[in-house]
Design a protein around this nucleic acid. Structure first.
Length: 151
DNA sequence: CTCGGAAGGG
DNA sequence: CCCTTCCGAG
């Protein structure tokens, strides 16, 4: 891959789009974060960082928490609670903390894509889903798997 | 701030 | 399962 500094430009929809069926499954936090990261209007609130690929910083923790709370209809949401949810991603290896850098985390994209793929294909019980447009080509999935294993 | 255990809800 | 809430420890 030859990737720029902005991962949102380098990764197509199937890389992180939530599974369709509107309403059925709740929005996931990692998806919401990616959603904010994708829009310029939130650049003062959360943004990609220079340096490690996939690294981002939450510039306004209170605002991100407020937006997340609004989306989930949880008015009592704050950064303390949101960050706990982010910490649960450490075990899943979807995200890790950039130690020493305040409010800074890094996405593990290969793991994220693979986890997302496994979840959606598991839902239908087959490798061929009803929504091929949101799935990575199998070859790319295998390539990512290799990149992940040797990283 | 950051970390994870514990309990609990939908 | 995927958080939300609460919280003691570092």
């Amino acid at each position: 891959f030859s990737l720029g500094s902005d991962p949102s430009l380098a990764f197509p929809d199937w890389a992180f789009k939530a599974e369709s069926s509107p309403g059925s499954r709740q929005i996931q936090l990692w998806h919401f974060i990616l959603e904010l990261l994708q829009k310029e209007e939130f650049r003062h609130v959360i943004a990609w960082q220079q340096g490690e690929y996939g690294e981002f910083v939450i510039k306004d923790p209170d605002e991100v928490a407020r937006l997340w709370g609004r989306r989930k209809c949880k008015p009592q949401m704050n950064y303390d609670k949101l960050s706990r949810a982010l910490r649960y991603y450490y075990n899943k290896r979807i995200l890790y903390k950039t130690k020493g850098k305040r409010f800074t985390y890094t996405f593990n994209f290969s793991k994220l894509i693979i986890a997302n793929y496994l979840r959606s294909s598991g839902r239908t019980g087959t490798l061929l889903t009803t929504e091929p447009s949101l799935q990575p080509p199998l070859g790319i999935l295998l390539l990512l798997l290799l990149l992940f294993l040797f990283s």
